[in-house]
């Protein structure tokens, strides 16, 4: 992949991000779509300093946000929109452990979730039991024993989530070479993670009651 301009075209300062200059506030139009890591001026890695990412988000936000270009010409306003959208999208990927891992697996040539749908074998047996518990709770009235049991299920799923995430971290730190077999393993852990997140969201929806009609 080609590199981006290293210096700001206006003030000559070193660019932290290919989207704009934090020194003078000038927007930059990248020649190709930057990766999420490139947007934040970071090297690809699963381990990430969350506080640093947030600081960078706010610093770049203060340069790129369209609010600061309200009086500018249309092309500049459009670039501010585009670059802010890139920044936020990149942040969504990097800030979420599962999304970041998913991106890294794809980036390294590993299988997508459509190409490899398996979950870890030991995990599969438990899924059947969890699904049964969730179904029983869904069919019972609020306040019933089945509903009360959801709290335990939720705690167990959260624990499982931690475990799957640690497994992903072990597989991706340090970053394996392109197309390494460990990427398949990482994908199956990510599939487990996706199942857990979906199930946790369903439990939360049940706890909050029926969605409003709107």
């Amino acid at each position: 992949m080609s590199a981006f301009a290293a210096k700001c075209s206006k003030c000559g300062a070193e660019l932290e991000s290919p989207l704009g200059c934090t020194a003078c506030g000038t927007l930059a139009a990248p020649e190709r779509e930057p990766t999420p890591f490139e947007v934040f001026g970071l090297a690809p890695s699963f381990a990430l300093d969350a506080a640093q990412l947030r600081r960078k988000l706010l610093r770049l936000g203060r340069v790129l946000h369209p609010d600061y270009f309200g009086a500018a010409d249309e092309a500049t306003r459009a670039l501010a929109e585009r670059n802010s959208a890139r920044l936020h999208r990149a942040h969504d990927v990097l800030a979420d452990d599962a999304a970041r891992a998913d991106w890294l697996v794809r980036h390294l040539g590993g299988p997508s979730e459509n190409e490899q749908r398996e979950m870890p074998k030991a995990f599969l047996l438990e899924v059947l039991e969890w699904n049964e518990q969730l179904e029983a709770a869904r069919e019972s009235a609020p306040g019933s024993r089945e509903r009360a049991a959801l709290a335990d299920l939720e705690a167990e799923l959260k624990q499982q989530r931690e475990r799957a995430l640690s497994a992903v971290a072990r597989l991706l730190e340090p970053l394996p070479p392109s197309a390494a077999p460990t990427l398949r393993e990482a994908r199956s852990q990510l599939n487990a993670l996706r199942y857990l997140d979906n199930t946790l969201a369903q439990i939360e929806a049940l706890a909050l009651g029926a969605p409003s009609s709107h």
């Binding site: 506030g25 706010l58 203060r62 946000h65 609010d67």
Partner: peptide
């Protein structure tokens, strides 16, 4: 306040 920011009045406020 937002109109003021949009007219280039300040960069102190960032709305996300």
């Amino acid at each position: 306040v937002q109109a003021h920011v949009l007219m280039g009045g300040t960069r102190e406020v960032l709305l996300m």
